[in-house]
Design a protein around this nucleic acid. Sequence first.
DNA 1: AAGTGGTCTAGACCACGGC
DNA 2: CCGTGGTCTAGACCACTTG
Lengths: 243, 243
Amino acid sequence: MVFVHTKTVSNQVDEILLERIREGMYLPGIRMPSESELSDEFGVSRATVRTALAKLAASGIILRKQGDGTYVNAHIHEASAQFGNLWDLVQLIEGNGYKPSIKFLTIEKRPACEKEALVLAIDKGEDVICLRRLFYADQQPVIFADNVIPYSLLKTPLESIDGSLHIREIFRNYFNQRIVFAITDIRSTVMDDLAGSYLSGGLGRSILQLQVVLYGRNNLPIATGVNIFDDAILRLSLAQAWF
Amino acid sequence: MVFVHTKTVSNQVDEILLERIREGMYLPGIRMPSESELSDEFGVSRATVRTALAKLAASGIILRKQGDGTYVNAHIHEASAQFGNLWDLVQLIEGNGYKPSIKFLTIEKRPACEKEALVLAIDKGEDVICLRRLFYADQQPVIFADNVIPYSLLKTPLESIDGSLHIREIFRNYFNQRIVFAITDIRSTVMDDLAGSYLSGGLGRSILQLQVVLYGRNNLPIATGVNIFDDAILRLSLAQAWF
DNA sequence: AAGTGGTCTAGACCACGGC
DNA sequence: CCGTGGTCTAGACCACTTG
């Protein structure tokens, strides 16, 4: 097998395996080829195959049983998120089977309030960028997102920001930052005026609030976010497998 | 270094490292020893050290930077759960800094309703065990848990079940099952009569509902659960790190 | 340039499950 | 018993960051 030199070998292996699972070449309930068979087939070492399989197992796509074999997990499609990845809203919407799109609402520069300053480890009153966006699942608005980012991190003019991009792209393109670590708080709350004006359904309805803090390369906070999540339309479900 | 033969070498290594982090021997912001230094110190291969470090990195305890080094994550203590482990309520309460305890409420055998039968992959009307418990954080009731398990899985008399045990123990002791895979749905809802009679706070209050399906060795569902979670007292926060 | 973590190899032995 | 995945070793080279 010839590998293109863009990704690691183990990554290419797990992509092939994922493709085969999606195609139905490996079916739930039937043993997949053993590690040795796969390493022979791909012409890589068994350790490399194991790296690829470990990645699939961690996200619950396959289940591995010592002394027996490796099996496709028949239930994984029931979960919309893996790995506790609650901040990647695009992936969350895709996981629910919808086509995600992002509508840019507003962007503004203003001084940080005390609470924001504390979380972002900046001084109170220091400038922050406040970015408001609305996420759609197919044509329905499902998540109202409010992000606050220290202005000092911005590397390009404020006006140049394309608010409809994936948050990862925004940080890469305009802030030269990479998201390394995230903490998400999940709360139950009721629909307020602001969120209610964008999301469907009545005021006072019970909804989910995801409070996110994103950290960058130096383990410093690079953004906070409050995401109002319409759980009447989107399911927030997490999968976890053990070894 | 002499290793006791009860756990794997890499497990013993990561426990030592965890201990050192807790003791403050490795501090946030200061580079930890390199992989080579650790493998020399412990007298194990670099691959074994990497296995241990990978485990710590996956739960966000350490952060690794290629070309630079490994650092203790200063922010990890802000999360109460890792790995999307939302079904282990005891761990969730501990993660919030409380002492967990479980109060057994009721246990009964009854026919499964249609919905339960569907989820548990059994026939409608087949017997299930319904186990209700209340989880305390210190002395406060914080989670009302309602579990439904197929009666056919039970290996001991119904009366022998100790409802105050950890769910993992219950499955091991009385069902001879191991929890291999779990899917948790998170919903926002309002306090109803049943939950309200156990948890503090008024009816109609906005609270979190965790709907769990647990799968066993054969990838068959072994239990469903509905956990009413008082997020006014407990924080549900998840950490996630990238590589 | 030096040192770090990231990837990969080719071996070895062990623990476990099904036959 | 045999084959499976689980662990471990001792090397090698690469990609990246920092001084």
